[in-house]
Design a protein around this nucleic acid. Sequence first.
DNA 1: CGGTGACCTTTCG
DNA 2: CGAAAGGTCACC
Length: 331
Amino acid sequence: MQVSGTIRIVSSNPLNLANTLPSGQSFRWKLCRSHTWIGVIDNHVISLKQNSPSLISYTAEPCASSEAIKNRLIDYFRLESPPLRELYRQWGQSTKTNHAENHTADINADFKKKAQKLDGLRLLRQDPYECTFCFICSQNNHTKRISSMVETLCNVYGSFIATVDGVDYYAFPKIDQLLRATEPELRGLGFGYRSKYIVESAKIVKENGGETWLRLQKLVPTDVAKLALLSLPGIGHKVADCIALFSMERLDVVPVDTHVWKIAMRYLPKRKKNSSTYQYIADFFKEKFGPYCGWAHTILFAAELKTFQTVMDEDSKVNKSKTKAKKTANL
DNA sequence: CGGTGACCTTTCG
DNA sequence: CGAAAGGTCACC
């Protein structure tokens, strides 16, 4: 038995599932049919269909109050605020700079161009506990493999939720379930050197109070929350920033990963790759995009993903012979 | 502090 | 078949 309903999307505050769900924030969504996505939120298998830019329909299993599911989705997609259209407009607007910077490329102008292809990409509000372990899996890894690792964690250690379209869905394992995982077992499941990080981090999370310990980090200052995250093995500054941004309401945090690094180097003088440069790049994004720079960052990050390359490249259909030149330019 | 190299495995060109 | 992938850690 399942519940269903619809959500109205207003144009001043868009949500585009196809641009949001595969953007590298969550690793739990799969496109199962045209415009239809299936994933798990909490203990519900959620199916979402983008009927049009202004209408999304959902089903949830197992049964629950339709209103409760709807409210959960509104929360998950941050549909209450801020009005995203206006943010896109601001991010695409060049900030006034001094003369020296006028000679460099304009990241806001480039944002504007890319954002047109990635309309309605919303930052998700994820669970800090789940997000933490997903991003421990993310280091030096690609989204496809991360997704399959997270799925394995759920299928092996999590509780069964429901079968939908012949597929069994499992919840993300609770800390006591996750504690059953051993390093050799995880290595056997293909987690590689992250196996040890997962096992050790799970122990520390348990010692500190379990899932709620991570959820409580929402309430403390950002630097305190980051220290808590950094105390877990397998979490450095970049992963801590991802968790803070995607699950702890730190929308002003900019994780500097390999893609963001490359983006930044198109606008900034070259620097060595060390911790001070990490902050230097994060500050650059903050200056250019303001208090919601983490959200802007995620859009620019997504534009670099292979998943979106076909969409982003539709520009070049104008003149296919230019493809070769474009490739060289990107190097 | 800053710099360097090892590290599991999959995916993609 | 080699490089890259939402990096981190140990060690100098």
